[in-house]
């Protein structure tokens, strides 16, 4: 029911942050994707995501948008501008999970700056499957399989060309 609100239980965030159950479910799901599992961490992260934006956090989509933005800002700070773009969140999340950063607790996301050692480890774990493409075309080579036959064909204009097929 929309009118029911839940108070976060984490002592490290202001107790005035409220999240609707649907928003909380969406936020929990989002942060579980980063490897957080404990209720305390999830509550704290929900509050952190909505801090200062309580009015917008009323709807699950808005809450999720805020959480994404917060995490992306954090990831950009940790990974550097190199990875900023559409894939920052997915690549950053992969690095976060691969390095098991969630085991450090929710506090790691809330600190103003991440430890240098964590930044280094996470940067090394960002999956970069391929560099930017420099697209080109590999032209199919033309092979006349039997040049003498081809010569006769041209003379008599008969039969199918004895050459490789174009793609």
């Amino acid at each position: 029911m929309d009118s029911v609100t839940t108070m976060t239980s984490c002592p490290s965030v202001p107790s005035s942050i409220w999240a609707r159950p649907q928003s909380r479910v969406a936020l929990d799901s989002f942060f579980r994707g980063f490897g957080f599992t404990s209720e305390a961490d999830l509550s704290a992260l929900a509050a952190w995501a909505l801090d200062g934006y309580a009015a917008h956090g009323a709807q699950p989509q808005s809450a999720l948008g805020l959480a994404r933005a917060r995490v992306e800002t954090w990831l950009a700070g940790v990974l550097g501008t190199e990875h900023v773009g559409t894939s920052l969140l997915s690549r950053g999340r992969a690095a976060f999970v691969l390095c098991d950063v969630a085991s450090r607790g929710a506090r790691v996301l809330m600190q103003p700056s991440a430890p240098e050692e964590l930044c280094r480890v996470m940067r090394a774990a960002v999956p970069v499957p391929a560099p930017a493409q420099v697209t080109t075309v590999m032209p199919e080579q033309h092979l006349t399989l039997w040049p003498f036959g081809e010569m006769f064909r041209r003379w008599f204009r008969g039969a199918a060309p004895d050459v490789s097929i174009s793609r």
């Binding site: 994707g33 980063f34 997915s90 999970v97 691969l98 999956p127 391929a130």
Partner: peptide, 14 residues
Amino acid sequence: AKAHALHMALLESQ
């Protein structure tokens, strides 16, 4: 969680 996050990141890159 690791396989999921990695796979999703690679999917998004293509």
